[in-house]
Write a protein that binds this DNA or RNA. Structure first.
Lengths: 226, 226
DNA sequence: GTCATTTAGTGTTCTAAATACACTATATAA
DNA sequence: TTATATAGTGTATTTAGAACACTAAATGAC
């Protein structure tokens, strides 16, 4: 492959790394792969890849999502571009990072088929990662925490129909704090984003919960509300 | 110049563009240059430059600040990485963008010495810019508006000593709205960031104003407060 | 079939923050 | 001395956030 638009300037390498979040079993999880090659062979890392010719960083992120998580059409947003010296032992390589939010059931990891064995891992249980990926993960978590407080992005972590308890639990997991049930419901319903459906959800010996859906998906900016 | 760490991957070009804001004559202004070369020769653009070898994007931004605005030690922050196809007619070149906040009196533009004639221009009076720089400017203004509402970055646009009226005016200019004087003072003083000095500022036939300073400079995150 | 258990669902009171609003103080220039 | 320009100050009202406990509806166990 050859750069047809070469200048006589220095061009750093450019990769894209993606923090793919989901909620599973009451935890916030992120997709990690086991690196198949050096550097950091067999170590955990964020899924990513080099930008190809005629591909935007966003395109690359979508490609990574499709290849490593088997999903498309999910919420994705550029985070930050990391380029600390020596972040990559191969040389001057910057990483344009993205984060993606995916409801667990949309994800299709073909177990075993991929050498890199992509897996969702509880963010609280992650030790060291390859490169500066721990830093990227910390940055992504902070962005996620901030963003669910002044936007409606939470919809992108939930199934189409969900209960208010599920919604509240999602907030609690990400913000890592308990929220008062009555205050949560009052405030969230007041935002006018939800509509109740006729359906109910029941599981086990308990009162069934009304299922809600977002009136419209698509991104919206709100006032800060927690 | 030669990339000593070459891989057999495609490397896009990488530039850094910087939105340098200041307040002057009651307006929010940004530093623009007149491009000396093609493409967009003689058109207005954000100051910027290619990343050099062994230089981080942040370093590049500092270099641009020093070269084009003659300042160092100012507030600077990475904004976003723009890489839309065809944003640069020379080919696939991404721009890692930064914004900087500078008190007007710190800036040292050597008039006429530079072929690019860097000038501060009122953001309200800017028509089209080169490349996708209008988009970058819009993004930077939004970030600035948001950021002064939940951080103390406003300090980086003010001189060491300033009056509460100057401070309020800076907020009003950036947010493009009037703020009630009593409420503003009450709220801002309550934050505990300022200390009054013995000095007073007078200009013209009017009561002199107490000069304040920030107790500590350096970035801090606050609650959203307007 | 009743009772124990589990989660769903609901209002009010109190506190804190945001907003709306108008006059006096102190300097200079005319 | 007086007109003018900006500095500086307090209260009342409204709105939003926080704290708090019981009833409702289903199932599983016995």
């Amino acid at each position: 492959m050859q750069n047809s638009k070469t200048k006589d300037y220095f061009n750093p390498g450019v990769t894209v790394d993606v923090a793919i979040f989901t909620i599973e079993d009451g935890s916030l999880k992120i997709l990690l792969i086991k690196r198949a090659n050096e550097p950091f062979k067999n170590k955990l890392a964020l899924p990513g890849g080099f930008i190809h010719e005629d591909e935007t960083a966003h395109d690359t992120a979508l490609r990574v999502l499709a290849d490593k998580a088997g999903v498309a059409g999910v919420y994705i947003e550029q985070l930050y571009t990391f380029d600390a010296p020596n972040r990559d032992p191969r040389g001057q390589i910057m990483s344009v990072t993205y984060f993606a939010l995916v409801p667990r059931e949309k994800i299709n990891i073909e177990e075993g088929r991929q050498t890199e064995q992509p897996k969702f891992i509880d963010v609280e249980k992650i030790a060291a990662l390859s490169f500066d990926h721990s830093e990227i993960l910390a940055y992504a978590r902070k962005r996620l925490q901030d963003k669910i407080q002044y936007t409606n992005v939470i919809y992108s972590l939930l199934p189409k129909l969900f209960t208010l308890s599920q919604l509240q639990s999602t907030y609690e997991i990400i913000l890592d704090k308990k929220i008062d049930k009555r205050n949560f419901r009052k405030k969230f319903l007041q935002l006018g984003l939800l509509e109740a459906t006729e359906k109910k959800f029941s599981e086990g010996r308990q009162r069934p919960a009304v299922l809600y859906r977002f009136k419209k998906t698509g991104f919206a900016e709100l006032k800060k509300f927690f």
